[in-house]
Design a binder for these strands. Structure first.
Length: 693
DNA sequence: ATTAATCCAGTTTTT
DNA sequence: CTGGATTAAT
């Protein structure tokens, strides 16, 4: 039984009575075992697995816990537990209620937001504040959705004073943004939670207990999501010192005020650390002590034995640092998957990754980001998306921008024309156009030249006769669009053929295969490969081009592999958005941001680039007292280590010609002797504290 | 007006 | 190196 392995503290928590239970679990105190134990206890009490909801921060974490439960019970029982991220769970339930959902990449919706913003005029007069930029306003809006249940206008006023005169325009933009998303059938991450919260308010869900992992990173939106569900029993596990998602609206106040919110709350504290050696733990604790305490922290070290002290590595310049670390890793006897290199921001990782590969050390970097950002992957998925959601004008425009002579404006007109020809359905507009319908809105520009109106249209189609397409295609009304040239018509022809052959298919794998083999996709791939192989002097390097094609082909293979796990196209596409970021490529040494390292542990850990400005991020730390969050980030990073911990920094970046001071956390950790530099850094951070008040 | 080419800045963190 | 913004060309 899972309970027999727990220590008394963990056992008490796992066997807590129903109600509102908060478990304060510091790093490495067996939080996962306790949650698994709790689930075992619930099942033992006769609770059905489908009455248990387990919310985790990543889907991988959920899968791991379910897997451990399966080890004690059975895969069948464990599989019935509702487990996943807030987003994944919301998605599943909304699908269960038969909603059609097409998740879009955040960047896509940001583009949409920008286009709506750009339609507005801001008249700002000299002394007034500049209006917020489109991108910034989008992020502000998204943060508001996550961080607040107040009205947007009021919240904005508090957070960005001086913007009052634009508030009306902002609200108008936001309103149109919401309406447009609805029109095109788009849903973003926030919408999943917001829609699910609405559902929970109306429908009582069958959960007897909700378990929340990483409770310290719950934001207001997620908090209200739980409130709306109003489960009879809550089991929240978290650690105040590991709250690192303030940028996403995570509010430590939520975990901090748990006992005030629920007067009947019971609090359990897990204080025995099983993960790290004494020197690693004491370093972590020394630093986190600089933060104000909400709960007293008395971590007990369980492990004993001759442990190595954490080692500080100092380098003259950045590349030397990466090189030396790569060498140290090469010499290490620790198996590669048990080694992690942890950094504050992703941008830094390119240097170390390149260096590791150069030295022949295999590594894996979390974030399928690069994969899903690749244009060829986007294009393949956009084509698939059009079959699942023919209302997706953005996907259509992206595809047609590859056609010569067709830009976003013409693509939009083509899309709207096809929708009109299909009485609201773009696909039937392609396959069975109603030729009684005029696909084009009157364009004032053309009609000023009245004379040419009619002849232009007829003539424009006949001039494509030499292309040799069949009559049925040549009769398609959309070809009358005046801006089309031969290349554009050819592109449309191939695209229509693809749509026709995809239409009867339902399974993701054959659909993806068909897309990858299509002329449309091959044409796009050819363009991308050529562009990637074009040298500065304009010549195309054939070898490079072949390599580019090979990389594109491999991504296609991976896409088909991924598609194999899904039974419907819509689910496949959504999963690529919902879980895509959790995909990691390769095997070997782990390259992780601090945020991505949360919840993981490794024998050997390198925390790199510990320079002031980078870690802590000075731009952030100097504002709004966020130095505490940066400190928590440091705490999370170092507590990933079980046995060996290396901290490193470089004094100089040759490439950018900038010098660095060491991170103030290195002083706080006692690795550097406090000097004038430290005093100066401390002042900078405290300056931020002042500003807050 | 729209597309295509060129230039320029920039890069926190996640579902 | 990408994506956005500016500019040149159609």
């Amino acid at each position: 039984m899972p309970l027999s392995r727990l220590n008394p503290e963990q056992l008490a928590a796992a066997k807590a009575p129903f109600g509102h239970n908060l478990i304060i679990a510091s790093a490495g105190t067996g939080k996962t075992s306790t949650i698994v134990g709790r689930i075992g206890y619930l099942l033992g009490q006769g609770i059905k697995p489908e009455e248990i909801l387990l919310l985790t921060f990543t889907n991988k974490a959920a899968a791991e816990m379910v897997e451990r439960v399966a080890g004690y019970f059975s895969r069948e029982v464990a599989g019935r537990i509702e487990a996943g991220t807030f987003h994944a769970v919301s998605y599943r339930w909304l699908k269960k209620m038969d909603r059609s959902i097409i998740l879009k990449q955040p960047s896509e919706l940001k583009t949409l937001f920008r286009s709506i913003y750009d339609k507005r005029q801001f008249h700002h007069i000299g002394a007034e504040a500049q209006p917020l930029s489109a991108n910034f306003l989008h992020d502000v809006y998204s943060l508001w959705q996550n961080a607040s249940v107040e009205e947007f206008g009021e919240w904005l006023e508090k957070r960005h004073p001086g913007q009052e005169s634009y508030a009306e325009i902002y609200l108008d933009i936001v309103e149109e943004f919401e309406a447009t998303k609805k029109e095109y059938g788009f849903v973003n991450f926030n919408d999943l939670l917001i829609q699910m919260r609405e559902v929970s308010k109306r429908t009582k869900l069958p959960f007897r207990e909700v378990l929340v992992d990483e409770y310290q990173d719950t934001n207001e939106l997620q908090g209200s999501w739980i409130d709306a569900m109003d489960p009879p029993s809550l089991f929240c596990v978290g650690d105040y010192d590991q709250s690192i998602y303030a940028f996403n609206g995570a509010n430590i106040h939520i975990i901090g005020s748990f006992t005030r919110k629920y007067p009947d709350a019971r609090v359990f504290t897990l204080s025995k650390n099983y993960r790290s050696t004494a020197p690693i733990l004491s370093l972590a604790n020394r630093v986190i002590e600089y933060n104000e305490r909400i709960y007293p922290k008395q971590l007990e070290v369980v492990r004993s034995g001759g442990a190595m002290q954490p080692k500080l590595l100092i380098f003259d310049n950045l590349m030397q640092q990466y090189e030396a670390i790569a060498q140290t890793i090469r010499r290490s006897t620790t198996p590669h998957p048990q080694i992690a290199v942890i950094f504050r921001n992703n941008a830094t990782a390119d240097g170390i990754e390149a260096m590791l590969r150069e030295q022949g050390i295999p590594c894996r970097r979390k974030g399928g980001r690069s994969f899903f950002d690749a244009k060829e992957v986007r294009a393949a998925l956009d084509l698939a998306t059009l079959m699942a959601n023919p209302k997706d004008m953005m996907a259509f425009i992206h595809i047609f921008e590859y056609a010569k002579g067709i830009g976003s404006a013409t693509a939009k007109e083509l899309f709207e024309g096809l929708v009109a020809l299909g009485h609201g359905d773009m696909l039937s507009g392609i396959l069975h156009p109603d030729d009684q319908v005029n696909p084009f809105k009157a364009r004032t520009v053309n009609y000023q030249l009245g004379l040419f109106d009619h002849p232009t249209h007829v003539g424009s189609v006949s001039r494509f006769a030499h292309l040799g397409f069949d009559e049925k295609f040549m009769a398609h009304p959309i070809l009358k669009h005046p801006a089309l040239n031969a290349d554009g018509v050819t592109f449309i022809h191939d695209f229509f053929r693809l749509v026709a052959s995809l239409r009867p298919k339902k399974q993701p794998v054959p659909i993806m295969r068909e897309i990858l083999a299509s002329k449309t996709y091959r044409f796009i791939a050819e363009q991308l490969a050529t562009k990637r192989a074009t040298l500065k002097n304009g010549e195309v390097d054939e070898t490079k081009k072949n390599e580019a094609h090979e990389r594109i082909r491999r991504k296609g293979v991976l896409l088909v592999q991924l598609a194999g796990a899904y039974r419907s196209l819509e689910k496949f596409i959504n999963a690529m958005v919902l879980g895509g970021g959790e995909l990691s490529e390769g095997e070997g040494v782990n390259l992780l941001t601090v945020h991505a390292s949360k919840g993981l542990e490794f024998d050997e850990v390198y925390v790199i680039d510990l320079m002031d400005g980078r870690f802590p991020n000075r731009k952030l730390a100097s504002q709004a007292g966020l130095i505490e969050e940066e400190r928590r980030l440091f705490y999370v990073a170092v507590t990933r280590a079980k046995n060996l911990l290396y901290l490193s920094y470089a004094k100089y970046d040759k490439f950018k010609d900038t010098s660095f001071f060491p991170s103030q956390f290195l002083y706080e950790a006692g690795l550097l002797k406090k000097d004038q530099v430290y005093e100066k850094l401390k002042q900078l951070s405290e300056g931020g504290e002042e500003e807050r008040k």
